[in-house]
Deep mutational scan, measured.
Amino acid sequence: MGQARALMGLSAQLDEELDFREGDVITIIGVPEPGWFEGELEGRRGIFPEGFVELLGPL
Rank of each mutant, 00 (worst) to 15 (best):
Glu50Asp: 11
Ile47Pro: 04
Ala4Cys: 10
Met8Arg: 15
Glu17Phe: 11
Glu16Ala: 12
Leu41Gly: 04
Gly35Asn: 06
Trp36Ser: 07
Gly9Asn: 15
Arg45Pro: 00
Phe52His: 15
Val31Arg: 15
Gln13Ile: 09
Gly51Asp: 14
Leu18Arg: 01
Met8Asn: 12
Phe52Lys: 12
Pro34Met: 07
Val53Thr: 06
Glu38Trp: 08
Pro32Ser: 05
Leu7Met: 12
Gly46His: 06
Gly43Pro: 00
Trp36Val: 12
Gly43Ile: 01
Gln3Asn: 08
Arg45His: 09
Gly2Ser: 12
Arg5Ser: 03
Pro58Gly: 10
Gly51Lys: 15
Ala4Phe: 03
Ala12Gln: 09
Ser11Ile: 13
Glu42Pro: 01
Glu38Ser: 09
Gln3Lys: 14
Leu10Glu: 00
Leu7Ala: 00
Glu40Val: 12
Asp15Ile: 06
Leu56Asp: 08
Ile26Arg: 01
Ser11Cys: 10
Trp36Gly: 04
Ala4Arg: 07
Leu59Thr: 06
Arg21Gly: 10
Gly39Tyr: 05
Gly51Phe: 14
Met8Pro: 06
Ser11Pro: 09
Gly23Asp: 07
Val31Ile: 14
Leu41Ser: 05
Gln13Gly: 11
Glu22Gly: 06
Leu14Asn: 15
Asp15Trp: 03
Gln3His: 07
Met1Ile: 14
Asp19Asn: 12
Arg44Pro: 00
Pro34Glu: 14
Gln13Glu: 15
Leu18Cys: 03
Arg44His: 07
Gly43Met: 01
Gln13His: 12
Met1Arg: 09
Pro58Tyr: 02
Gly39Met: 03
Pro34Thr: 13
Leu59Pro: 09
Ala4Leu: 01
Asp24Met: 03
Pro58Val: 08
Gly35Arg: 03
Gly43Thr: 07
Glu16Ile: 13
Glu33Phe: 10
Asp19Thr: 15
Leu10Lys: 15
Ala4Ser: 03
Ala12Met: 07
Gly46Phe: 05
Glu54Gln: 08
Ile26Asn: 00
Val53Gly: 03
Arg21Asp: 12
Arg45Thr: 13
Gly30Phe: 06
Trp36Met: 14
Ala6Asn: 02
Phe37His: 00
Phe52Gln: 05
Leu18Gly: 02
Glu33Asp: 06
Phe48Cys: 01
Gly35Asp: 02
Glu42Arg: 14
Gly9Phe: 02
Val25Leu: 14
Met8Lys: 15
Leu55Gln: 07
Ile28Asp: 01
Glu40Arg: 10
Phe37Cys: 03
Gln3Glu: 10
Arg45Trp: 08
Glu22Ser: 10
Ile28Phe: 03
Thr27Gln: 13
Met1Gly: 06
Ala12Glu: 06
Ala6Leu: 04
Gln3Pro: 04
Leu55Thr: 08
Asp15Ser: 11
Ile47Ser: 07
Pro34Cys: 09
Thr27Met: 05
Arg45Lys: 09
Ile29Leu: 13
Pro58Phe: 07
Gly43Leu: 02
Val53Asp: 02
Ile26Thr: 04
Glu22Tyr: 06
Gly51Asn: 15
Leu10Arg: 15
Gly46Val: 03
Leu18Trp: 02
Val31Glu: 10
Phe48Asp: 03
Gln13Ser: 14
Pro34Asn: 07
Ile47Cys: 12
Gln13Thr: 13
Leu59Cys: 07
Glu42His: 11
Gly46Pro: 05
Glu42Lys: 11
Ile29Ala: 08
Ile47Phe: 11
Pro58Asp: 13
Gln13Asp: 12
Leu55Met: 09
Gly43Val: 00
Ala6Ile: 06
Arg44Asp: 02
Glu16Arg: 12
Leu14Ala: 15
Pro58Cys: 07
Thr27Ser: 12
Gly9Glu: 12
Gln3Leu: 11
Glu40Phe: 08
Glu50Asn: 04
Pro32Thr: 08
Trp36Thr: 10
Glu42Trp: 03
Leu7Gly: 01
Phe20Thr: 00
Gly43Tyr: 04
Trp36Gln: 10
Leu55His: 07
Gly46Arg: 03
Ala12Arg: 14
Asp24Tyr: 03
Arg5Lys: 08
Glu17Tyr: 14
Asp19Trp: 11
Pro32Lys: 11
Arg5Glu: 00
Leu10Thr: 09
Leu59Val: 12
Ser11Gln: 15
Glu50Pro: 02
Leu7Cys: 09
Leu7Ile: 14
Gly9Ile: 00
Asp24Ser: 03
Val53Met: 01
Thr27Cys: 05
Glu50Thr: 10
Ala4His: 02
Pro32His: 10
Leu7Val: 12
Phe52Ile: 10
Leu59Met: 13
Ile29Tyr: 10
Met1Leu: 12
Glu16Trp: 10
Glu42Asp: 15
Pro32Arg: 12
Leu59Ile: 09
Ile26Gly: 02
Arg21His: 10
Val53Phe: 03
Leu55Val: 12
Met8Glu: 11
Arg44Ser: 07
Ala12Val: 06
Gly9Gln: 14
Glu42Leu: 07
Leu59Phe: 05
Glu16Phe: 10
Arg21Thr: 12
Glu40Leu: 12
Leu10Met: 15
Gly46Ile: 03
Glu54Cys: 08
Asp19His: 12
Gly30Glu: 01
Met1Asn: 02
Ala4Pro: 04
Glu38Asn: 07
Glu50Lys: 13
Pro34His: 09
Glu54Leu: 09
Ile26Trp: 03
Met8Leu: 10
Pro32Leu: 05
Glu42Ser: 10
Leu41His: 07
Ala12Leu: 03
Ile29His: 05
Gln13Met: 11
Met1Gln: 05
Ile28Thr: 05
Gly46Ala: 00
Val53Cys: 06
Pro49Ile: 04
Phe48Asn: 04
Glu33Cys: 14
Glu22His: 02
Met8Asp: 08
Leu18Phe: 08
Glu17Lys: 07
Phe20Asn: 01
Gln3Ser: 10
Leu14Pro: 10
Glu54Asn: 05
Gly2Cys: 13
Asp24Glu: 11
Arg5Ile: 11
Leu7Arg: 13
Asp15Tyr: 08
Gly51Val: 12
Asp19Pro: 08
Glu40Gly: 05
Asp24Phe: 07
Gln13Leu: 11
Phe20Gly: 03
Thr27Trp: 00
Ile28Gly: 01
Glu22Thr: 12
Leu55Asn: 02
Ala12Trp: 03
Arg21Tyr: 09
Leu59Trp: 08
Glu40Pro: 01
Gly51Leu: 10
Phe37Gln: 00
Pro58His: 06
Glu38Phe: 11
Met1Tyr: 09
Pro49Lys: 11
Val53Tyr: 04
Ala12Tyr: 00
Leu14Gln: 15
Asp19Ala: 14
Phe20Gln: 11
Gly57Thr: 13
Ile26Glu: 02
Phe48Gly: 03
Leu41Asp: 00
Glu50Tyr: 05
Leu59Arg: 06
Gly39Phe: 01
Trp36Asp: 01
Phe37Asn: 00
Gly23Cys: 04
Leu7Pro: 02
Met8Phe: 11
Leu41Tyr: 11
Leu14Trp: 10
Gly57Ser: 13
Glu33Lys: 15
Phe48Ala: 09
Glu42Thr: 09
Gly2Met: 08
Leu18Pro: 00
Leu55Cys: 07
Leu10Asp: 06
Ile28His: 05
Trp36Tyr: 14
Leu55Ser: 05
Gly2Trp: 11
Ala12Gly: 13
Phe37Met: 08
Pro49Gln: 09
Thr27Leu: 02
Arg21Asn: 15
Phe20Pro: 02
Gly9Lys: 10
Leu14Ser: 15
Glu54Met: 05
Met8Cys: 14
Gly51Tyr: 13
Glu22Phe: 06
Gly51Trp: 13
Phe52Ala: 15
Leu18Thr: 00
Ser11Glu: 13
Glu54Tyr: 07
Ile26Lys: 03
Ile29Trp: 06
Glu16Met: 12
Glu22Gln: 12
Gln13Cys: 10
Leu56Ser: 07
Asp19Arg: 09
Gln3Arg: 11
Gly23Asn: 10
Glu54Ile: 06
Ile47His: 05
Ile47Tyr: 10
Leu59Tyr: 01
Gly57Leu: 06
Glu50Cys: 12
Phe20Leu: 05
Gly2Val: 14
Glu50Ala: 15
Ala6Glu: 00
Gly51Cys: 15
Ala12His: 06
Glu17Met: 14
Ile28Asn: 02
Met1Asp: 02
Ala4Asp: 01
Met8Tyr: 13
Gly51Thr: 13
Leu56Arg: 08
Glu16Val: 12
Pro32Gly: 07
Thr27Asn: 15
Glu40Trp: 02
Gly23Phe: 02
Asp24His: 01
Pro32Ala: 00
Phe48Pro: 04
Val31Thr: 13
Ser11Arg: 08
Ile28Ser: 12
Gln3Trp: 06
Arg44Tyr: 01
Thr27Val: 03
Glu50Val: 10
Val25Phe: 07
